[in-house]
Write a protein that binds this DNA or RNA. Sequence first.
DNA 1: GGTTCTACTGAGACTGAGTATCATTCGCCT
DNA 2: AGGCGAATGATACTCAGTCTCAGTAGAACC
Lengths: 151, 151
Amino acid sequence: MVSTRSMERSIERTGRRMTRTRRALIDAIAELGDHFTAEQLTDAVSGVGRATVFRNLRLLQDTGVLCQVVLRDGTTEYRVTPGGHHHHIVCSNCGNISDFENCDISDLLAEISRRTGYEIDAHRLEVYGLCAQCAALPSMPAKSLAGSASA
Amino acid sequence: MVSTRSMERSIERTGRRMTRTRRALIDAIAELGDHFTAEQLTDAVSGVGRATVFRNLRLLQDTGVLCQVVLRDGTTEYRVTPGGHHHHIVCSNCGNISDFENCDISDLLAEISRRTGYEIDAHRLEVYGLCAQCAALPSMPAKSLAGSASA
DNA sequence: GGTTCTACTGAGACTGAGTATCATTCGCCT
DNA sequence: AGGCGAATGATACTCAGTCTCAGTAGAACC
């Protein structure tokens, strides 16, 4: 887990002010842990306006502290980012999120570029499935979740 | 372009009624062409309620006539689907959308599965860039668009 | 410590995309 | 032609996020 101190430093580095509201938000994010929704964060810092929560969520994304995760149903969560380009894999059962980096998507993109003639400059990839723990649960008919989310 | 007739058949095949509203929507979709927003469709069929537009957008997605495309900015468009599992590549300049299928993502997913321990059952992939025409335009500083959309 | 400047905040109205409700309409089967 | 239930339109609502604007409070300077 990333420390509150390093999150604060990320904001300071941009020349922004370190206000008590921002400190409260950062503490709450550290409390909430791995991943959380905007609503959870708003609830966790009572007294802070919703607009401010969203403003700072955006700021923290811009400074590379947080990233957005698009869930299977299209809703979004926020997550303390490991930094750098990465993708998410979300457990459909327990909601846990893992990151993976250095994925070999560049070959795939090159092939797509060759086939479509496009000059690719960005992509969006989210992967869904069952984490090792949930896949191991005997009670759950894992296969019933089969089917592609979209795209 | 998929014919209005085949779209109608897709609905009939599900046992749904072919109403004049649905015909109007299907005609409008054929008119709008390749890709369109829910708002454009609503505007194109004046007199049809917004709720009905969304209901039928969903129905047409469920019957495999349409698919959703998530744009770089997170907004969604609808698109007549080529059928089967496929992904989209969207031109950041002109907005054109192309599909690609048979992509070699399964190897990538297998590797991700091996690394993370997840049992993968779905994914979401959208690719952004410049189509061949737009990339060829001399006036546009194509490189300025560089950077990843997210995820 | 006081001033000042301006970024930041909170409240609340607003937006855009989509959903729920419900009375009315209209396909379609007989 | 009648009847039934699916489909519709109007409208209110939700959810996630943005805009506005007056008030507050960091922080830099004296």
